[in-house]
Amino acid sequence: MHEMAIMQSILEIAEGEARKHGSKRINRIKLKIGEFRGVVKDALEFSFDVLRVNTPAENAELEIETVPIRAECPNCSDVDISINDFTMICPNCGAILSITSGREMEIEYLDLE
């Protein structure tokens, strides 16, 4: 359940931003979490419900966008490959793929009052 630690970080960053902008209330937190991160959306939402109490984000809405895993092949360079089963080998030529998205773990934006 490292989602608790991750949500703690998210709230610290969000509260810091709210303070910086002179805001006492966070209305919305939008996250982008890649599929190739070991983070479970439900656990993150649960952690948010536990940790938001008595913070500026107490009544905030949490939106989590899941970013699918995509990769490119060094040989078949025009092909944008969608990865379903975490196989990091090109289905066309067998080369090792490099991940282009799916490793995101960021706060995209906050809505502050």
């Binding site: 991750i6 902008h21 773990m105 960021e106 934006y109 809505d111």
Partner: peptide, 12 residues
């Protein structure tokens, strides 16, 4: 209400 774009990674 205003939107603030954040550039900090969560794990930073």
């Amino acid at each position: 209400m205003h939107q603030v774009t954040i550039e900090t990674g969560i794990m930073e």
